[in-house]
Amino acid sequence: MPTTDAYGQGVQIASLTDAPNMETLASNLATGLVPRSVMRFASASARNAAITSPVAGMVAFLTAEKLFTGYDGTAWVVLAAGTSAWTTIPLASGFAHNGNSNGSAQYRVVNLFGEITVMLQGGIDITYSGSPATIANGGIITSTALPSAARPGSLRTVPAACSAVTSDSLSLKLDAQPDGHLKIIGTTASNATERITPPWISLNGLFYSL
């Protein structure tokens, strides 16, 4: 009867006393080795359809999501994210890249401690109009929404450093909205007594989870 591999992985190996059967031999090796290798699927849904009863320790790469995932005995979790290049954020009228010489405002999707997260960098110049000074586009800096892979499941608010020029505050809020738009919150309201109209904000060091 077949024996198992010397590493305790349960891969069946035909014994010399077994009746010759190449189909059984090949099947045993494939069945034993494939679930223990890094399996590749087009997407998470394709993985879930193919592996209906996952076993703890299985690893699968998802092509569409560019993610390495592993089954921990309860759920599929992200082990690592593939290469994610910086992408320039499309800005609405009233906002410009390279605020305070910080470079273009950009984002990329990364794996942070096993959680898919959006990382931001760069700076944004802000223009205001009217009296009192009003931020352009209601504070929404994006001209088009970020792709679905960079949209949070619910509102994410993070602090963003800003210029002290024409501002009594050194930071504003940046809202990452579920619809894929980014919005600056906290500039001077029409009934406010303080002045918060900084000419730029920095996105460097900002992250928001999905």
Rank of each mutant, 00 (worst) to 15 (best):
N28V: 02
A60G: 03
A56T: 12
F61Y: 14
L172G: 03
T144L: 09
I184C: 06
W76N: 10
Y208G: 04
T87G: 07
K66A: 12
R108F: 06
A19W: 14
A81F: 04
T197E: 12
S163P: 01
S101D: 09
R36S: 03
P2W: 14
D179P: 01
A49H: 09
P35M: 11
I141F: 08
D175Y: 13
L174K: 04
L67K: 10
D72E: 06
A64K: 10
T187P: 01
T187H: 03
S45D: 15
A44T: 08
G123R: 02
G139V: 01
S129H: 08
L146Y: 00
P20S: 14
L33A: 05
A49W: 07
S202A: 00
S209Y: 14
T69Q: 06
W86N: 06
Q12W: 11
A6V: 15
V77K: 13
G205S: 05
L29H: 11
T4K: 13
I141R: 03
T188I: 04
T74V: 08
G138H: 03
T193Y: 10
G10C: 11
I116E: 09
F41S: 05
A85E: 08
A96T: 11
A105P: 02
Y71P: 03
L155V: 12
G73Q: 00
S37V: 08
L16I: 06
P159R: 10
P2I: 01
T166D: 10
I124K: 00
M1E: 08
P199V: 07
S167P: 01
R47P: 02
A30W: 15
V78W: 08
L146T: 00
P90H: 10
V165P: 09
V11E: 07
V38L: 15
P2E: 05
V78F: 11
E194N: 13
R36A: 01
G205F: 04
A46P: 02
A105E: 03
A44G: 14
L112I: 13
N28M: 06
L91N: 05
T193H: 09
V77E: 05
V158P: 07
G10H: 04
L170D: 14
G103A: 04
N98T: 09
T63K: 11
L91P: 09
A49S: 13
D168H: 15
L112R: 15
A56N: 04
S131H: 10
S148V: 14
P90E: 09
K183W: 01
G57I: 03
D125P: 11
R195V: 15
N98P: 04
W86A: 10
P198A: 00
I51A: 07
F207T: 09
A49P: 10
R108Y: 05
